[in-house]
């Protein structure tokens, strides 16, 4: 057996699946070939070493979730079966209306097809223009509604309402100046750090808006919560905003700064400059 043939057997050797004949052949080759011997030794060492990765037990919640899912699924199937039996009766009744001979079936389907195509052609043109106007109007309406909802939710007392508002704002394709201004106000003045973080992340999506980048940089000096500071630094580094360098330097000089934020700011500084 040559080296190549021998090495082809190594995978089976590791799992102990070589038959006696092949095992004897491999051993005979190894006795005379030190390089194959070393190769198998190092493979076996790693293969065995992998045994130190301990198997773990999943938490009990997994089992509970599975059985809940299974029960729900079974109930769903029962309901479906009931619905299906009504459906079967209806389709059996419809089936009686269809002619039995394939030729007639074909003729009937061609007739329906012709009616469908003809009717469709007549209706489409008119419908298409009307639909276009309607869709555009609807889109505008939805956009307006979202903007109004965002603005009014941001005034709410509950932080979770304000969080929802910020999240909604991210779905606006082109938010107007008023929304941007409100988000910026939220970023700098909201009493809840989570809402401020969400506002920073929402603003990041609109960073090509002329005011946003500058305001994000300025906000760095206003924020006191380390989490908000970290988020802002991440965002500024992400958009590669070189103008943030000065703001980061000032931040680092602040003696009261949280050490982790300082570390991140220094890293950010290195990434930007």
């Amino acid at each position: 057996m040559n080296c190549e043939k021998t090495r082809e057997q190594f995978a089976d050797h590791l799992t102990g699946e070589l038959d006696e004949k092949s095992l004897a052949d491999v051993r005979a080759h190894l006795a005379s070939c030190s390089s194959c011997r070393e190769e198998l030794e190092s493979l076996s060492a790693i293969w065995t070493k992998l045994g130190v990765l301990p198997p773990e037990q999943p938490g009990p919640a997994l089992r509970q979730r599975f059985y809940t899912m299974l029960e729900a699924f079974k109930e769903g199937i029962e309901e479906e079966k009931e619905k299906a039996s009504i459906g079967e009766r209806v389709s059996a009744w419809l089936g009686q209306l269809v002619p039995r001979r394939p030729v007639y079936q074909l003729a009937l389907s061609l007739l329906f097809l012709a009616i469908g195509l003809g009717g469709g052609f007549l209706l489409t043109e008119r419908a298409r223009t009307a639909a276009k106007i309607e869709v555009a109007a609807l889109k505008q309406e939805v956009k307006d509604m979202r903007q109004t909802a965002v603005m009014s939710l941001l005034q709410q007392k509950s932080p979770s309402d304000r969080l929802m508002a910020v999240n909604w704002s991210t779905q606006l394709e082109q938010p107007d100046d008023k929304i941007i201004a409100t988000l910026l106000d939220t970023l700098n003045n909201d009493s809840n750090a989570n809402v401020r973080i969400a506002a920073a992340e929402a603003l990041y999506l609109f960073y090509d808006h002329p005011r946003v980048k500058d305001e994000l940089i300025d906000s760095l000096s206003v924020q006191t919560s380390p989490l908000v500071q970290l988020t802002l630094i991440d965002l500024l580094v992400e958009i590669r905003e070189r103008r943030a360098v000065e703001a980061l330097r000032t931040l680092i000089q602040n003696k009261k700064l949280n050490p982790q934020v300082k570390k991140r700011a220094e890293l950010g500084l290195a990434q930007l400059s």
Binding site: R7, F10, A11, L14, S42, L43
Partner: peptide, 13 residues
């Protein structure tokens, strides 16, 4: 598959 296992262990090592 066998040669993938072989190579994977070698790379892992």
């Amino acid at each position: 598959v066998k040669s993938s296992v072989h190579r994977a262990i070698k790379d892992l090592g």
